[in-house]
Structures are given as C-alpha cells and as structure tokens.
Design a binder for these strands. Sequence first.
DNA 1: GTATTTTTAAAACAGATGTTTAAAATAATC
DNA 2: GATTATTTTAAACATCTGTTTTAAAAATAC
Lengths: 200, 200
Amino acid sequence: MEKDTRLKLIEAAAPLFAQKSFAAVSVRELAQAAGANIAAVSYHYGGKEGLYHAMLEYQFEPIAEALERIQTMSSLPPAERLGLYASLVAGVHHRRPYLLRLVHAELTSPTSGFEAVVKKYIPQIFRFIHQALEEGVAAGEFRPDLDIGLAVISLAGILNFYFVAKPMARQLLPASGLSDEKYVSQAFAIYLNGIRREKP
Amino acid sequence: MEKDTRLKLIEAAAPLFAQKSFAAVSVRELAQAAGANIAAVSYHYGGKEGLYHAMLEYQFEPIAEALERIQTMSSLPPAERLGLYASLVAGVHHRRPYLLRLVHAELTSPTSGFEAVVKKYIPQIFRFIHQALEEGVAAGEFRPDLDIGLAVISLAGILNFYFVAKPMARQLLPASGLSDEKYVSQAFAIYLNGIRREKP
DNA sequence: GTATTTTTAAAACAGATGTTTAAAATAATC
DNA sequence: GATTATTTTAAACATCTGTTTTAAAAATAC
C-alpha cells in the first residue's frame, strides 16, 4: 500500500476545509483531491463530518505535543513562558499551515467540530498564558492594573490575527516585508513592552 | 408597506451568513427568516450571491461614514488618530454586530464578496493606521525601529481578535469580566505603550 | 378607478449533495 | 495456494440545492 487512504484523505482535507468551509467542500471534491474513491470517506470515517473531525484532531497534534513539553517548563520566568507561546504560534503555523484558519473558522462559525475537538485544546492554551501573566503581575514585573483574562486574549490576538489576515496583507504590504518570524517577534515585543510595569 | 422586503432580506441575511457561512445558508432559510417568499431573493437581488453582496455593502456603511469623518481629522497627533481607530472598532461592532465575523470569514475563506466588497474598504483602514504610525515614528514618538506595515496588522489584530473569539472567551472568563469597552481600552493601552519610544 | 409595481404562492427545473449498495480487487492469514 | 478479511470501485439512492416559471393577489402610483 502506497500510503493508506485514511491518511491521504486527512491530508487532502485540511487545505480544502481551511480555504473553503465545512459546508462548501463536497465529498466528491475531497475524494478526488486525495486520489481516492467517493465511498472511501464513508467507509473510513463514517462520512464527511467524521473525516472533518479526524482531520481537526490531526491538526492539533503538534499543539498537544508542544503543550506537554511546555508545561514542564513552568519554572521559567513569566516573560520567557510567554515567549514560548509566541514561538509555539510561529512553529505550529509552520508545521500545520491550515490549523489557525480552521480554528478561526470554528470560532466564527462553529460546526460540530468545535465541541468535539477545538474546545478540548483552546482552554489549555488559555490557562498556560493566564498563569504566566498572573505570576508576572504578582512578581511586580507586569502592570498591576492588568485585567489578566482580557490580556490573554490580547496576546492571542496580536500573534494569531496576522496569520489569518495574511492573504489580505500580501496585497497591502511589499512582498519583502512579510516574514512570519519577523512579525511574531515584533508583535511579541510590542505586547511584552506594553504590559511591563513602568519604571518609577 | 411595513418594511420593504428588500431590507427585511438584508437584515435577516446578516446573522445567518455570519453565524454559518455563505455556502451553508440556503435561500429557503433566508426567505423564511425574513418572512418573505423564496422567489423574493431572485426577484430583488438576482439570487443568493446578489443578496450576499448587498448585505455586505450594508454592513460596511458605518465604516465608510466613519472613515470619511476620520480623514478630516488628520491634523490630530498620531496617538490620538490611532485612538480614533480603536473607538471606531468598538463602535462599529456595536452598530453592526455581524460585520467583523463576516469580514473574518471573507479573509479565511474568500467568496466573490471579497473582491466585490471587502477589498474596497480594508485598504482604506490600512492606510489610515499606516499613516498615523509613520508620522509618529518620524516625530520620535514611536520606536524608530518599528516595521510599520507589520505594526498595522498588530493593531488590527489586538483589537479585532477579541470580537471573533468572544464566544470562546465567554466560556473561559467569568461573565462579569467581558466588556467590549474595557477590552478595547486595555488592548489599545498595551499596544500604544508597546510602540512608544522608551524614555532615555 | 385604472395602471404599475411589488409580493405571494405552488410547482417544476436541472444539477449537486452525502450516503449506501453490491460486486470486484487486493491484502492478510493459515 | 486456498481462504478469509479488508479495501476499492462504480452505480444508484433519496434528498436538497438555487433558480425559474406560472399565476393570482396585494399594494402603490397616477
């Protein structure tokens, strides 16, 4: 067997579901992109929805791994833990170029995949950032008036939005000015500088 | 006439298209939500796509207005002009609760509505922020090493992502901690603080 | 009051949808 | 090598899609 049909289906499904939407992709389209038969979707995954869920789980794989690795580093200073998250965002987007678009689609237009898959992983990330911010404030390193819950969203927003807006950004910026690493590092610097306690 | 069918269709279409997606909403569904006949969609807008475009234009109306008003204030100091954008984001989301979701959907999964409608407005907003940042750097108010193009995306991201992530945020934060104004003001403060030139 | 436009209703249209079926082909096991 | 078990295939399934057509009804304009 060259590469089993199950995997071929999952890998072909990711870009299709990410670039269109769950409803806009047809089973025939999926099968053709995977070089498989139409019936293979139902046979292996019980249907279009089952394939979609399996594909989502596959996309979250590197996140799950990274989170486990990261949890063990809870002894690092808060700012460095936030930096870990920043490089995780950049790194994951490199390994799974469609994940962020898929998650954004689930946030704006939740399907069954939101409850089934997305909801499992997002809170873990949230708690990781929340804890780092909490300790940073307690240690007097970050502004004491910070609303931590909202600040978590701000970090996720300033880092992730770029990857969603990239197609539009490519039309607005000179092509040379678009580097993922450059973006993440400047955005994180702005954020960190923004929450730091001002020197008296 | 109680409220002509054209408007009823547009207003009913916004939440449906925003919460699902263009492909996932059926014409029968649209007509029923508007209390109109199925044929009314084709009669007034030439079809589902025509209704979608008209609804998008309607959603951008307050943005177009605000941008005209704002352009006349180009004499304000850069930081205040950025603040204008921040309050525009909050205000527009209040008047058009579905706009940001619709735009995000068009960014992640562009339909014909992207070229036809969204592409007209986004660059205007981009240029407005870009210009303010440029002047701020030139005036020595913002960090001189700032990549301005990327910094525009950061501002849009830190302000807008919240409104996209709100459904998820509601499950992660104590209900009391979610105020649009509070979020926008803190997020903007973090950003502005983050790009400010450090005192020597 | 007549003429024009808008709205409604029900039906029909061709095409696409996700899923199932039963036979054929391949792989695994003994 | 024969016999299972698994996978693939093409065809058929009922259902839903957006749109159009017919017609009558209602509302508005002149």
